[in-house]
Nucleic acid binder design. Structure first.
Lengths: 222, 222
DNA sequence: GCAAAAGTGTTCTCTGTACACCCATGT
DNA sequence: ACATGGGTGTACAGAGAACACTTTTGC
């Protein structure tokens, strides 16, 4: 703790459980998806839930979130930030520090285990969830939408090189509305968050697209 | 906890200490001030620190923050929101859920006790602080500045009725820069967050000022 | 009548939005 | 030649910023 209570200088409080939760988003098939894990144990056995777990002793919540993310997707060095600290999601007085992360579906390799199997689910179409995980996901979703407008977090959703159409489709999937192509390109370029690589992607029977990259692969606000 | 770790279904983790911290701001004498408490116990005996303390058993962090705020200032029903969850501020692996609150200095009555004495300090001129409380205050300060621009949080800093000049001085104290009177009034009124009460305040040897009130006394974003 | 703060409009710039056509390629 | 997505510019509206003088009161 950081400051003792004046009224209880040495409170012998029973310590609450402290857990970490990670809301891991990706964009795949033009839909925003979230990683869920099928619970193999009680309570809520058989329900889907967010990855997470009790804090290992002396492990900081940030470190635990990074570890969880790595365990489930194999990725690191992506956008990951603290979301909110929820209390009593389980009805038993615990405290859960929630994080949210953005990963590129191509780079993420889900753990292939028997129990506690992970899978992607479209945020717009979630299965019944354990605990109150639906509200945690909703909170993360609102935050993601807000950040998309005033930061470069999308860098974490796409491969290093991408076309402007890919980027726009990712934005549209998250914001759930169509964006104007010209305005979108103008804005992205004028904000200076991306730059052309000079390379080109020939992907279909149509004109090849210029490939772009984010200038910075860490969070920037504007 | 909300979800058990797949890899450690029944982790016997040593639970970390969980504390609550509250950064309580007010505007007084045209300066942004923060409430600090003089520590009467170790560690950091004699240093100033943020009010806070260990979570009482089974008490939710939100409830503990509300309680702390009431204990130190006597007020409730003010703007209070979760700020961030810090880890290891004390170098001993604790977790501290920080909140920040805005109070009207006129309504707040500081506890008058012998030990753990509370007092206001200008944010721009803080004494040496216990633990890493300076960075918590700084974080809260940044958040407050940001919210001032896109919310009505200031409702919590002023009495129910106030003049536009008072409101502007509060904004200027927080943002630490002068604002244009006409633009400020235009904006406040066009956002529709305040309304004239019809009453008037004759306060000096000059023209009396119209009194305004916030339309909503709860947080609104725009 | 003077000191002191209250109150009030207009102009300009910039940002966001709406909108439609030609281009390069594969088949 | 045609189907497919890539790529481009302009005009309008609304928001924010700059800027100075008159009004009302107490003394």
């Amino acid at each position: 703790m950081a400051t003792r209570a004046p009224t209880s200088p040495r409170a012998p409080a029973a310590r609450p459980d402290v857990a970490v939760l990670v809301v891991i988003f990706t964009v795949q098939a033009d839909r925003l998806q979230v990683l869920l894990i099928k619970r193999s144990g009680d309570p809520f056995r058989g329900y889907w839930a967010l990855p997470g777990g009790l804090l290992a002793s002396a492990e900081a919540p940030d470190a635990a979130a990074i570890r969880k993310l790595g365990e489930e997707t194999g990725v690191s060095d992506v956008f990951l930030e603290q979301l909110y600290t929820f209390s009593d999601l389980d009805g038993r007085g615990s405290v859960a520090v929630a994080y949210f992360a953005l990963v590129d579906a191509q780079q993420a390799h889900l753990a292939r285990r028997r129990a506690w199997l992970p899978a992607w689910f479209a945020v717009a179409d979630l299965p019944p969830l354990a605990f109150d995980n639906a509200s945690v996901i909703d909170y993360a979703f609102q935050r993601l939408r807000a950040k998309l407008d005033y930061s470069n977090v999308a860098y974490s959703l796409l491969p290093e090189c991408f076309t402007l159409s890919q980027l726009q489709r990712a934005y549209e999937a998250i914001l759930a509305r169509p964006l104007d192509k010209r305005n979108f390109r103008k804005r992205m370029l004028s904000l200076g968050i991306i730059e052309p690589t000079g390379r080109v992607a020939a992907e279909g029977r149509h004109r090849p697209a210029q490939l772009y990259a984010f200038r910075e692969r860490h969070p920037i606000m504007f």
